[in-house]
Nucleic acid binder design. Structure first.
Lengths: 205, 205
DNA sequence: GTCCTAATCCGAATTGAATCCGAACAATAA
DNA sequence: TTATTGTTCGGATTCAATTCGGATTAGGAC
């Protein structure tokens, strides 16, 4: 039965807990961060933590909310300008601002985002990445015309990572906005358009 | 100090533990799956589990290895055929086979993949998704020419999810194969090519 | 100023899951 | 058979998360 902070000092306490959460995440990792760590860093007793958060997970949630809120707060005021730009320029702007946000404060948000998207298994994901990269190489060897394409490594990285994530996320969705068939056709077209577009880019030089 | 299984029955035990891990994951979720649960389902004592796995996390790792191995085993023999196909057909084939694998056995692998890519926070990711979708809508309103594009929702889904994941993953990478600038330009071109390609598709009808 | 109440803070005690360990139980070899 | 090594087991231990009851403080009433 967590309580809502009412007095000013309580709000400060809640804030210091979330703050400490980020610090501990950077210092001890997500598993290593005990409630005692967090309370110590926040400069409060363990019990106080449970006045405002039902459990440790809720602290993480609050951290998450903060990241999300900041991302939204970043995009919202940017929208009017983005909307007027050329689409490529808009994407570019968004990407760099997004990075700036994630890197802020020694990458504190990035560390959280990394865990949220579980990069713990980053290294073990390698085999899949590798075999897909191999596939790309083999494919290119069989289709000499696409060899002229620049950025093959970059585009592969994007397509492989982005594609896998989209599919996994979609399959896990309880009530997806789009069907799997639509997603699949979309990915197919995406890859097709990228190849066509990149090749066209080269030809017109 | 986990041990390598040497006798046949020990190998069977190890296997039953990994197997039980998948079952428990489906039954109790990732947090709810205690070592005792796993041991019970595997039909062994808790202690036996620790003969072969240093800790619970290693059991999860073994499960992960299995998923990865199966994905690789799926792609490997497929490569010769994929390589001969038209690229769109190849992507399509790969996607459906990938889904089939993840869905196998009542989605046991998908459940793991979902946790590995932490879909726990799926719902809370919504605000970011929403604001980006809004951005797309606003953008389209300011650029009537792209309104003719079909698949706007699908392409947005792919670009938003795939793009965010690629960026977060890349920023978390310790020794990235490509620079952030390359990734960003790649994403920019990807979006550009998709828009161009989709519009061209419509025009040529 | 004093009093009172609710809000806040605390940390020792409890709980429960992960992990360890040593005894008991198979397999294998000599 | 006996010795040796591999395997299984579940009670004992450890450690972090969570609870609880009391101490402390803010802020309004008088």
């Amino acid at each position: 039965m967590p309580r809502k902070p009412q007095q000013q000092r309580a709000k400060a306490t809640v804030d210091s807990i979330v703050e400490a959460g980020f610090i501990c995440l950077g210092r001890y990792g997500i598993e290593g961060s005990t409630t005692r760590h967090i309370a110590d860093v926040a400069g409060i007793g363990v019990g106080s933590l449970y006045e405002y958060f039902a459990n440790k997970h809720e602290v993480m949630d609050a951290m998450y909310q903060r990241v999300v809120a900041d991302v939204v707060a970043m995009i919202q005021p940017l929208t009017p300008q983005l909307v007027k730009m050329d689409i490529r320029e808009a994407v570019r702007t968004l990407l760099y601002d997004f990075r700036e946000l994630l890197m802020r404060d020694d990458g504190r948000y990035l560390k959280y985002a990394g865990h949220a998207v579980n990069i713990a298994h980053r290294d073990n994901l390698e085999p899949i990445n590798k075999i897909l990269m191999d596939l790309v190489v083999q494919y290119v060897m069989h289709h000499p015309e696409v060899m002229k394409m620049p950025n093959i490594p970059v585009m592969s990285y994007i397509v492989i990572n982005g594609g896998m994530f989209s599919v996994i996320r979609h399959l896990g969705e309880t009530s997806p906005m789009i069907t799997f068939d639509q997603l699949a056709e979309g990915l197919v077209d995406m890859v097709g358009h990228i190849v066509d577009g990149e090749l066209r880019k080269v030809e017109t030089i």
